[in-house]
Design a protein around this nucleic acid. Structure first.
Lengths: 216, 216, 216, 216
DNA sequence: CATGAATGAGGTTTCATTCAT
DNA sequence: TATGAATGAAACCTCATTCAT
């Protein structure tokens, strides 16, 4: 294992003016387009700039290097999905487990489904250094949110161990990916939402004892 | 989406002499090593050859291009796991659903766990064209095996629709991945096996009605 | 005969800024230099770039591959010679055959003699695919021009068949080559011009009957 | 101009045994095949060995390097054609010029036409060092033979200067090439023979005065 | 700010040649 | 002698990045 020179991942400048914002948006969209049409391996900064309709020099004015370009994509999407999940978890606190899972799954799936193109494009990236770390960070935030929520469920006999939460989270993420990579037809998405709830509920009730709520 | 000139993915020659068999093995191992230590993005044919202790020319005698090198890795592992799954599915035919899932999950996890280094390394590869196609092929073989098995379960009320089988398969694959990427400690693996069985059983019984076995 | 993947032969971009025009010219000249000093077999893109005083990357900004570099050379020269010939043929229409041949040969030899270095360098190239095709195209244009001219000669009894035109053209080209490869000393060139005219006239009058001009 | 390490061009060993002779012949034929099917640029020693049905090691037992392989091809053909020409020139001594040219052209064309595949294949080779030198040597032998012959013609007024002989030789060679590269259909060959004679006779009579034979 | 020409390290791949078996 | 595995110099080409205009 060796850690080579890690480039800066932060955007070079935060756009404030109108024109800059447009440019940044164009580059952002172009990156997704190229990712989807050419694949991560064949994404080049030149191609992105071309697609965005700006010069390569301009691209580098806003992103100090290629990694930061992809990193921005990943970060934005992950942040959005994660915070949606966190909010959903907060909202569902104190409700029965089944309702919790239903609510969270629904919110999660919907968050991922906005801009399916971005979600799909992102599966292509691994982004060497920054990517996994970011994903890990977001995952731990999500796990914490889920745990804190489930701990408030009135009908759960034993506090589930972390591993269980992880299983739930992973199942959600992977089922989502499965559907996205298959094209994310609306019917599939509806089915996904339902089955994911069932899967989580079935698993949880098998793993934690479920108390009758009135017992509380 | 455009499909550019796709290079040959098949190995260039099959080794016949003893010496060359060793060489191929060395290249194979080196590829895994490099994948793990440098990541897919920084895997170069030069580095692989170096690590394998052979010249770059020798590498190219056995693999016509870089892709074919990674493809071989992927194919071998996938083939092994998939056929293990197929066999497990055949063996479990006619048994009650719970036993089926237990058996299949156990076999699947064990197959993935041989050479965890390879399994882990492979998550890095997407290999542009050949990879996804291969993965899709193996998945459909797996889905068929699972379906044919579940259809023989005496205690399943309604034949599950394809989507359900896919959910099961995806959950298994993703949970496996989660554990492998976390380092695959033995305790985790044991826990994984158990929880995966519970997850599958919980989901299936929630989704298909389960008949009492003695009814048969 | 098999035609493998043929690379693009067209230049990659047309220079717009002043700086790049110079660069393209430098690469062009360098290619000739290297062709003459090292031979076609030992012409490498690196060597050309070096000689041109630009980086290898710059070379590839203007020519997508090695072939296109050589192709450009060939095309430019052939185009110039061919169009000179076409013009000469037009000019000589209606004149007696002997004068025609004199005029055409003179123009042809002179066109070839501008930048003898290029002409000489070009004999080294065959450029696999694009070369022969280009040469063939130019030849057919030339043959047409010659035929159309000769058909207007007042003193030619029978319209000469295509084969005869080709003999004339080939003889001109090969005699030219002979002299160029021998170093193209001025005396030789003068002799060449004269003898080529004699050869063409001698052959033509042996092959077509020559009518007395006053008959017209 | 720089002259790099020139490799040995002579075959490594002269085959004496029956098997060796077969092997050498196979390699020889394979070289022609590859030259015709793949072109000079894509002729590799491996491909030749493969086509010949021998191992690459065996090929190198008989030819010390790639150049010698091509050189052998060139040499054999050139030698054959040149000596045929020399003999034809000797035979025609003392005859009238027209008969001379007829005889020589016929012999020359026929010599080139045996194994048209070889003749055609050879146009692909330039072989960097050895080729041009060999060609030059053969040319000077040919020119000498032609000159010595023509000097004996009873009906030639003035001894033609060397340049004229060269024009004749070049015209013959190039017309030959033209027909070969066009596919060498039998009709074309017959026409070629006739027209080449006419061309030479026409040119010679234009250049040297022709005396009436009976004057002698 | 925007442009795009220029850079060159470094990657992939080929192929003539050697040499142990 | 024949084989073919191994070699590695050297070729082609890409692409992230810089910087003068």
């Amino acid at each position: 294992m060796n850690s080579p020179a890690r480039p800066t991942l932060k955007p070079r400048k935060t756009p404030v003016q109108a024109r800059s914002t447009e440019t940044v948006a164009a580059i952002y969209e172009a990156t997704i387009q190229v990712l989807l049409s050419h694949g991560a391996e064949r994404l080049t900064t030149t191609r992105v700039a071309e697609r965005a309709g700006v010069s390569i020099g301009t691209l580098y004015q806003y992103y100090p290097n290629k990694q930061s370009l992809l990193f921005a994509l990943l970060e934005q999407k992950l942040e959005r999905v994660t915070s949606t999940l966190e909010i959903a978890c907060k909202q569902a606190r104190g409700k029965p487990l089944a309702q919790m899972l239903d609510h969270v799954v629904t919110q999660y799936v919907d968050a991922k489904m906005m801009r399916t193109d971005i979600s799909t494009a992102l599966y292509q990236i691994s982004t060497e250094m920054g990517g996994p770390a970011l994903v890990a960070k977001m995952q731990s935030r999500s796990l914490k949110a889920l745990k804190d929520m489930i701990d408030t469920a009135p009908d759960v006999a034993a506090k589930p161990e972390p591993f269980i939460i992880q299983m739930i989270y992973t199942s959600m993420a992977s089922a989502m990916r499965m559907v996205l990579e298959a094209g994310a037809a609306p019917i599939m998405v509806r089915k996904l939402r339902m089955h994911l709830v069932l899967l989580c509920q079935g698993y949880m009730s098998a793993v934690c004892g479920i108390r009758a709520i009135q017992e509380t």
